[in-house]
């Protein structure tokens, strides 16, 4: 019988759950046997030690936005096997399997929603779909989301969970870094706020592109965040890595993120940020090519 990986938790999600009811769940951090109902009530945070279980994209969206307000876009964009890539199985088959086992069509889900009374564009990655890796379809959906925020003058929230670029799409994957970054460059120049939430794990080309390019960067406690993986670093340098290396707390200490936010506090923090950044009206000097008129960088003008 299908048994979900213990690092995920199935919350009562309207459309997609991880699978069947789980009767026993063990916290990978404190080894406590957890009651699913209590864990669900705690938003997937271990009620003993505070370990944050990974969440599926639909669960996360349902947890944050006003009920019924999420309007999903690009649901039918599906990855294609442009390279004819084959590892232990053909990539096309891997895509099919991932779609079947996760119930989503790609590693990212996006749409417009209302959060704390504020309409916004929400983009959410899903680690369960091929490790949340960014292929061409993933990058396309993310960029569509960014461009929607730009054209509709809506604040942008991206929730990341990804191992990085998707190997099976080669250079087409790598170029999604440039594509998403260029779109965010336009968003930033237009004075539209972008909040990034980094969750476990956020690595590689995703950290080195859209995930780190936000006005405000938040992270969940204990999330692994970085560029190169610890294994790769150890193999390359034989360095002894410090305790807590690449955790959200480690990155906060090094000035890379603004705040580590426990999951139950996330709605409050997002509400506060949206109030501060969107109160004066988003992007009053909206311009598709904001830097076209001056050679010096245009300062963001707020109401």
């Amino acid at each position: 019988m299908f048994r979900p990986k213990t690092r995920y938790v199935a919350l009562p999600s309207p459309r997609v759950g991880v699978g069947e009811e789980i009767d026993r769940l063990t916290c990978p951090k404190c080894d406590t046997s957890l009651e699913p109902a209590r864990l669900t009530a705690a938003l997937g945070v271990c009620y003993r030690c505070g370990y944050h279980f990974r969440l599926r994209a639909p669960e996360r969206i349902a947890m944050l936005v006003e009920p019924g307000s999420f309007r999903e876009e690009d649901q039918n964009i599906i990855a294609t096997d442009a390279l004819g890539f084959k590892d232990s199985q053909p990539y096309s088959k891997r895509i099919e399997q991932s779609r079947a086992s996760t119930g989503v069509n790609e590693a990212v889900t996006w749409g417009e929603a209302i959060l704390a009374g504020q309409p916004l564009v929400m983009v959410c990655l899903d680690f369960a779909f091929m490790g949340g890796s960014m292929g061409a379809a993933t990058g396309e959906k993310i960029t569509n989301g960014i461009e929607r925020a730009l054209h509709s003058r809506l604040p942008l929230l991206i929730i990341s969970a990804s191992g990085g670029a998707r190997m099976q799409e080669g250079m087409l994957s790598l170029m999604q870094m440039a594509k998403t970054a260029a779109a965010l460059g336009r968003l930033g120049a237009a004075g539209i706020p972008y909040i990034s939430l980094l969750t476990d794990p956020t690595m590689g080309g995703v950290t080195a592109s859209f995930a780190s390019l936000a006005d405000v960067i938040l992270a969940e406690p204990g999330a692994m965040i970085g560029f190169a993986g610890a294994r790769v670093i150890q193999q390359a340098t034989y360095e002894t890595l410090p305790e807590g290396f690449q955790t959200a707390e480690f990155l906060w200490q090094h000035g890379m993120i603004d705040l580590v936010v426990p999951r139950p506090e996330l709605p409050t923090v997002l509400r506060q940020l949206l109030e501060l950044y969107a109160t004066n009206g988003v992007a009053k000097d909206f311009d598709l090519q904001p830097r076209a008129k001056a050679s010096a960088p245009t300062p963001a003008v707020r109401g």
Partner: peptide, 25 residues
């Protein structure tokens, strides 16, 4: 890019991402 602990501490991903935007613009 160099896979090292120091590179991670000093935000290698942040540095690369910022260049992607700077070059695009």
């Amino acid at each position: 890019a160099f896979p090292g602990a120091g590179a991670e501490e000093r935000g290698i991903a942040w540095a690369i991402a910022e260049n992607l935007v700077a070059l695009a613009q």
